[in-house]
């Protein structure tokens, strides 16, 4: 019986039993594998690093999507960068008030493979009439487009790999220019206990571009090493200062169904541990 050992860290890592190898694409440039595991369902790994699993993906995707959309309150235009598995798209599509979704994915092959082997991730969302799918490098798209958005979401790989340019200053700056007034950018920013520098680097870049920025967190079991963080950047400081009651009202009004996201978690997710605050150069969680 085969096993898959994640090669993210030298001295620590998670291992899966491979109950059935479903797909493998090993080229000179990357190694994509999808297998079935008894505990996590179908598991996708890229270059030895777990990207998503059927069992725990809802935590990640609900937090990546619903926190900025509920906080915005009236998002009509949403841009997703990356997210080839379609699950971020699926969550965005739950919001009825969204009338246009642009998804920019660099690799159409990823979408094809995920629609076939991880069908629950997109759950038909690729057929949503509000979707405009663009196959292009995310940085190039945000640099060249004139379109503006209420919410921009980056659902990327780690900075070591194809997602590298989505962590750079140029990208964050270009996103800033693509946000409508009151807009917000939410980013995937890694497991901060293990990859503190990733959040710290993003914080340094946000600081020089956005009026209000912070991180919020969730614990995703297969992103091992504790909580992972999402970057939050906007020119509207009110978006992350909504009351519990207001978030709850919007959540009910949206009518979306969630398994992880709750209004209480939404608010609490912005409370960061001290070591992370120090790494991102903030004195406290509150009004800083």
């Amino acid at each position: 019986m085969n096993r898959f050992a994640e090669t993210l860290y030298d001295s620590y890592g998670q291992e899966f039993r491979v109950d059935e190898l479903l797909y493998e694409d090993k080229t000179d440039h990357q190694h994509l594998v999808i297998f079935h595991n008894a505990a996590f369902g179908r598991v996708m790994a890229l270059d030895g690093v777990i990207q998503t699993t059927e069992k725990d993906e809802f935590i990640y995707h609900e937090m990546l999507v619903h926190v900025p959309l509920i906080a915005h309150g009236g998002a009509g235009r949403v841009l997703i960068i990356g997210g080839g598995d379609g699950a971020a798209l699926r969550e965005v599509a739950k919001h009825r008030q969204v009338d246009e979704i642009v998804m920019v994915e660099i690799d159409s092959g990823v979408i094809d493979v995920c629609r076939k082997y991880l069908p629950g991730h997109s759950a038909g969302a690729f057929d949503d009439p509000r979707l405009e799918l663009v196959i292009e490098d995310g940085l190039e798209y945000v640099t060249r487009t004139d379109a503006k958005f209420d919410v921009i979401i980056t659902d990327s790989t780690d900075p070591i790999g194809p997602g590298e340019s989505l962590f750079g200053e140029r990208f964050y700056r270009a996103c800033h220019g693509r946000l409508l007034p009151g807009g917000v950018l939410a980013t995937q920013n890694g497991v901060c206990f293990m990859q503190l520098e990733e959040a710290a680097a993003t914080a340094r870049r946000f600081r020089s571009i956005y009026t209000d920025w912070h991180f919020y967190s969730a614990a995703v079991p297969t992103y091992v090493g504790g909580i992972m963080v999402f970057g939050w950047a906007s020119d509207d400081p009110q978006l992350r200062r909504l009351t519990r009651a207001e978030i709850g009202r919007r959540y009910l009004q949206s009518g979306i169904e969630t398994r992880y996201y709750t209004p209480e978690i939404h608010r609490a997710a912005f409370a960061l541990p001290r070591y992370l605050l120090e790494a991102i150069g903030k004195a406290c969680n509150a009004a800083c």
Binding site: T7, L8, Y9, D10, M194, Q195, L196, E197, A201
Partner: peptide, 20 residues
Amino acid sequence: TTFVIDNTEELLKFIPYKHR
């Protein structure tokens, strides 16, 4: 994930990857 260094300059190159 195993690398070799023999001087300070080379050590500093690993700061961004130190957790890995």
